[in-house]
Nucleic acid binder design. Structure first.
Lengths: 198, 198
DNA sequence: CGCAAAATATACCAATTGGTATATTTTTAT
DNA sequence: ATAAAAATATACCAATTGGTATATTTTGCG
């Protein structure tokens, strides 16, 4: 059971995460935070050492949730090839999902923190590595199970896929047009069939 | 001949543009601006109505420069197919070029302005449309000159290419690894040869 | 219940924010 | 060279910033 204080900590993070994600670190003020949570500075600073620590906690939570969502969706199949299709399937719904939380946290926090906050920026790099490694493992186990060509450079291909995915996310968010994501996911599906599959 | 005042206006924009591009609108303070320019607030506000107007002017200048660079490089050939290769060639050097100005202005300002500044955000969308239209026209004239398959949906393919380019730019900047850009440009070159070319 | 401990609110701080009115300097055309 | 105009500097403003010390309330345990 969660103590009242732990609940408050969690509540602050949940409430504040989309605000940081939308507006960025500098543009999110303590008064934005107190207003959104309905708490006072005393409560905020009782739960977090400073604004930066709160921002980091918020990103970590958002990121953990997102990685879990991918993992959950992916686990709908056991077959590596099918799991790759489940990944593109996941990103087909990404615009919907990320609109609620104010955009893609990986892209937003990367841009926001790059010249401002090393800790936050390193967390973004870490998240990207996780996603890439996940894709790489999928391709690798596809090779092992004889579904995917052995000639494929797994990591290189994983990076290529995630680069395309990220580009599509950025484009649909800035052009406010989901077709970028949908088209790119179709394109990736084609690549899986024609370039990866044996 | 430029009057002294016009020179100052230009100087302010040039000096301030990379700062806004790096740090974003909110994180760039008037004192950052006066410090960087060596001018006082009086001079700044004599040349610009407010911080927002200056930020817009800075982005427009950066964007104009960038579009001109692409156009100049592209005009090294007359052949549409060759021009497409010149585009990927341009982006192969993009990391170098954008590091000086603090990252890709399209990506940075898009993320920064999305929930903060409509005018700025619309300028980003406008720039993207320009680049996409340019790519689309290249493909179209490639069709006309019999170099490119008529079955290609020009705009759709232009969007697809720019999505990949943008993804690659984002990835090299956040992973601080130019190979994302290089690999993606190789990938696009391959696509031009195998999917576009007759 | 009652009490100690933990959590939250209040009231404050110096520093900085974007912006402005006015004083001063610099530019430009005569 | 000079005077009018334009540009820049100075000195100020109220509001807000992130943060803190302390007072008050709430929580959970015996």
């Amino acid at each position: 059971m969660l103590t009242k204080a732990e609940q408050t900590t969690e509540f602050i993070i949940q409430t504040v995460a989309p605000i940081f994600n939308k507006n960025g670190y500098a543009a999110t003020s303590l008064s934005d935070i107190t207003k959104a949570t309905g708490l006072t500075k005393g409560a905020i600073y009782g739960n977090f050492r400073n604004k930066e620590e709160l921002a980091v906690a918020a990103f970590r939570m958002t990121e953990k949730n997102m990685l879990k969502r991918i993992a959950d969706h992916q686990s709908l199949s056991e077959s590596p090839i099918e799991q790759l299709f489940l990944v593109t399937d996941f990103y087909r719904n990404y615009y919907n999902f990320t609109q609620e939380i104010g955009g893609c946290p990986v892209i937003n926090i990367s841009v926001d923190s790059k010249y401002q906050n090393d800790i936050l920026f390193q967390h973004v790099q870490f998240s990207i590595n996780k996603i890439q490694n996940n894709l790489c493992k999928l391709i690798d186990s596809g090779k092992e199970s004889g579904q995917i060509k052995l000639s494929i450079d797994s990591m290189r291909y994983a990076k290529r896929l995630y680069t395309m995915i990220t580009g599509a996310i950025f484009m649909t968010h800035t052009m406010e047009d989901n077709s970028y994501l949908l088209d790119t996911m179709d394109q990736i599906d084609q690549m899986i069939l024609t370039e990866l599959k044996l």
